[in-house]
Simulated assay, not measured.
Amino acid sequence: MSPSIEKNNNNNSSIARESITEQVTINEKLNLCFPLESLTQVRSDLINYSKINDKKLDQGLLSQLMIDDNLLCRYMKRRRGHIEPSVQFIIGALEWRHSLGLDKCSEETFPVELFSSGGLFILGHDNTGNTVLHIRVSHFYKIPELIGLVKQFVMFHMYKADEMGSRSFPLTGGWVLVFDCSNASLAQGDPEMLAFINSSLKNYFPAGQKYILIINLNWVLRAIKTLAFTWYPSAVKNRIKFISIKQVTDYIPLNELPDYLGGSVNCYRSIPKNCTTLETLRSNGSITLAQSAYDKIIKILTLVN
């Protein structure tokens, strides 16, 4: 090799090292888990897609992804930071959220009856600071007329838990899902809803869901558990923990637990101000309910209270 060629190669190597070092420094300063160029490219591809598909997308989430590097990184983590798979994953989430109507939901969207039932709520943190979303299976009944509304209600709170968890852990997110199966019967074991939750976590959520606790799974629901486990890859199965009520404090402090799990918190049925009612939704045509179906639902919700 001639001296001039060797000198050029050395200069090129030096420039490459400086470029890599500069990029690492930028990423460290911005706390990014992927190169800044990758985030820029993903955003550019999303903008191009939205120009011809804007009516199919959750515009609120899209706008947030344009300015929130940590949120974008958490979505990209679901596809290991690869640009094209990340873009397709995010587009899928944006379209799905819009089709489900989540982009138009707020706490006031949902009727007071769903909040007062105490079947689903966010409460406190686990032993490592992750936000905890509780689902009390015995308080859920499969009501065909409300299935769409209940799916929205569940997803709204799952995304809210994810958002709250990201405040404590901006880079990684941090929330957990707790299913209490105590006193649950086959009537509350809804494979369709379980499949919906599983599919949603798998296909539309950013990285950040840490683990799932299933408490007091009784023999009635074990058949559904066996079915559900056929849907999960081994990595997901390892995040699902079946425990008794006595083991809950291995994961969540006693003072962060609701009273029915042995904790000291009894004010978990938090009802937002100005939220609607089932009767109002029925009256304005948001949901279709015959009087007999409405009376049946009110009776069920009264029982779980």
Rank of each mutant, 00 (worst) to 15 (best):
M1P: 04
S2C: 04
I5A: 05
N8H: 10
N9R: 13
N9K: 13
S14E: 11
A16P: 07
I20F: 01
E22V: 10
Q23T: 11
V24M: 10
T25Y: 09
L30P: 01
L30N: 12
N31W: 07
F34G: 01
S38K: 08
V42N: 09
R43C: 12
D45K: 15
K51Y: 06
K51S: 11
D58K: 05
D58P: 15
D58T: 06
D58C: 07
D58L: 03
G60D: 04
L61P: 04
S63C: 13
L65V: 06
L65Y: 04
D68L: 08
D69L: 08
L71P: 08
L71E: 03
Y75V: 08
Y75N: 00
R80I: 02
G81I: 00
I83S: 07
I83A: 08
P85R: 04
Q88A: 10
F89A: 06
I91A: 05
L94I: 00
L94S: 00
H98L: 10
S99W: 04
E107I: 06
V112G: 04
E113W: 07
E113K: 02
L114M: 04
S117N: 08
S117R: 09
S117Q: 05
G118R: 00
L120Y: 03
F121S: 03
F121C: 06
I122V: 04
G124V: 01
D126E: 04
G129S: 06
L133W: 05
I135V: 13
R136W: 11
V137Y: 06
S138A: 14
H139P: 02
F140M: 01
I143G: 07
P144L: 05
E145L: 10
L146T: 07
V150N: 03
F153Q: 06
V154Y: 02
V154R: 00
M158S: 10
K160F: 02
K160H: 10
E163V: 12
G165A: 05
R167I: 11
R167G: 05
G173F: 02
G174L: 02
G174T: 02
V176W: 00
L177E: 03
V178G: 04
C181K: 03
S182V: 10
S182I: 09
L186S: 07
D190Q: 04
P191K: 02
E192A: 14
N198R: 06
F205I: 09
Q209A: 14
K210M: 02
K210E: 03
I212A: 05
I212H: 00
L213K: 02
I215P: 01
L217C: 10
N218G: 10
A223Q: 12
A223T: 14
K225E: 15
L227A: 14
F229G: 10
W231R: 12
Y232I: 09
K237E: 08
I243E: 02
S244R: 05
I245C: 15
Q247D: 13
I252P: 00
P253T: 06
L254I: 15
E256I: 01
L257E: 00
L257S: 01
L257A: 00
Y260G: 07
C267R: 11
Y268I: 04
Y268T: 09
R269N: 15
P272L: 06
E279N: 14
T280Y: 11
L281A: 09
R282Y: 08
S283A: 12
S283E: 14
N284E: 12
T288V: 12
L289W: 05
A293D: 13
T302C: 11
L303H: 15
L303C: 12
V304T: 10
